[in-house]
Every structure is written in C-alpha cells, then in structure tokens.
Amino acid sequence: MILVHIDHDLGTRAPGGVTGVDPLSLQALAAARTLDDAVTAVVAADGDLPPAAAAELRAHGASGIRVAMHPGLADYAPQATARILATLVEEVCPRAVLAAGSARGNEVMAHLAAILDLPLATDCTQITIGPGQSEVTRARWGGNLLEEARVHASILLATTLPHAFPVTPAPAAGEVHTWTPQVPDADLLVRVVERVMPTGAVGVGLSEAKVIVSGGRGVGSAEGFAPLAELAELLGGTVGCSRVVTSAGWRPHSEQVGQTGTKVAPDLYIACGISGATQHLAGCKSAKVVVAINTDRDAPIMQVADYVIVDDLHAVLPAVIEALRQ
C-alpha cells in the first residue's frame, strides 16, 4: 500500500467553488498509482471530508481514504499533520508515503522523515520501489540538475516535483474511514494563526500571467522599468525581473523570476537586459515563447530564446510600444 498525504484548505476556503483539495496533491496520487493499486489518500482536517472532496480523490485513484479529524486542525499545522501520518505509517506499514513537492508537502514530509528517522527524497520526477530499497530521480538546483539516487529504507518517503506526474482520471472505490487521532500539544504549537489578505487591487500574479515583460541589470535603474511596465500593461501582462534587480531594490521580490523567486509559465516571456543565468532560467523555462532583448549576442539567454533582438532595450521597447499603439 502507498499512503498519499493530501494537502487541502477545507477549513479556510470560501464556501462553494472548488473542492478544497490541493491540485498538486492529485499529482502525488497519480505518482502513487504507478507504484501500487492500493493507494490510500490521507486527509488531516478538523471536520468531515466534504462529499465533493471525497469524490475528487476517488476520481483520481484513491482506493481508500483515511480522514483524521482533530479540532486543532482548523488551519494548516505541519507537525501535527506529520504526527498523524506517522501513527498511520506504524499501523498500516506502507511501502511508501508520497506528497506534493510544494512548500507544504515538503514541509509535512520533512517532519515525518524526522519523526521516523528515515531519508526523504524531495521533488522526484521518477520513482520505482523495490523491497528494502527504492530508486528515484529528483531535481536539484531548481530543476537545472537531476540526481539519480537509491533510497535504502523499507518505507520510501518522497515528494513529487510539480507537473512531473500528469493527472489522469482513474476512478477507484475510495471508501472513507474517519478516525480521531491523538496529537500531543507540542505538535500543534506551530500552525497558521492568522491569514493576511492583500489590500487594494491585486494585479495579475506572476505565476498565472500569460505575458511577462521581465527586466534585468541591463534596465539600469528603477525608473528604467517604466517602458517595461507600459508594455506589460498593453499586453495584459505583468512585470518580472532578475535577482540583481531585487537586490538593488529596483523592484519588489514578488516580481523575481527564478530558482529563489517565482517559477512562471507564460505564453510570452520578454527578457530585457537579462543574461540568462541558470538560476534565472530555472524560473522561466516553462515559458512557451521567449523573446530576448540584449546588447550581447552571446548572452546565455540568447541560446534559449525563440526570438532575439540584439540591441539596446531602451531603444527597442519605446518603438515596440509605439508600434503596438498604432
């Protein structure tokens, strides 16, 4: 049997609409199905699993659903969730425990690994399990490098790299079993105590944007971003930038694309005055079309671009804006 930790926002989401099940957790479920027919989805929450959420898990291959109900889980509590998984691991002795390679999935699994004193393979793109040992391929360096590793453990703990395992419908029985676990207070110490919603108008988020006009050191200054912002607006997109730009304080970090910034997947990524360091490319390699505007023909970004303009961005961008306005 494989256990799959299902992240959710059942307790906090606005009523109606989506089921509250984390879409990336469905990818972990998909990965589990490639390893075993018996796949148990584990949900730790403060109340019953809504029927729509149970149906979604069933439709994605959960042959069993275990719901741990605890009043302390009204909002996300990583260590308590891991403790619940640890108790279940002892009870059912699974071959593996999987979760999404998201901030939360990796966090819960790291707690679980620490509790069980087992290795944890994060951000896997491939998984095979055998008796007493498993083999994984996992992402390093924000996906710029892959590692093949053998995990010597009777239970494999792993998380799945986002979008490495496609979600396909796979109806399964998925009978729901609910239980009330014991959770020591110390495990509930760290949990979400408050949510701060953004004030004022929120523009298009980087990760959802269809068009990103991104600037690097070549833009030269905070003021230099004016034509980038104007072009982004004309195209219904948003501004992105490199780390050099955020460390100089020209733009906020929420706009940084890359390994330690945001990973983006727009239809169009216009890189202006960005050299294309691996750590930057780690964030924009899922862009459908890349246009690079750079004075240096040999800049690495020119190798990964679909279209290049070898020229000063400050000459090109105003001309593009003017042409678009006509």
Binding site: L118, L145, L146, A149, V304
Partner: peptide, 18 residues
C-alpha cells in the same frame, strides 16, 4: 536507512535556433 547518490544528470534542453 539512507539516501545514496548514484549519479547526476544535466537535463538536455533542445537548442531552439532563435
């Protein structure tokens, strides 16, 4: 229990011929 690194792989990105 431990994780043993076997080898590293640099993913090939297709040259786009911009």
């Amino acid at each position: 229990p431990r994780m043993e690194k076997l080898r590293l792989i640099v993913p090939v990105s297709e040259a786009k011929g911009a």
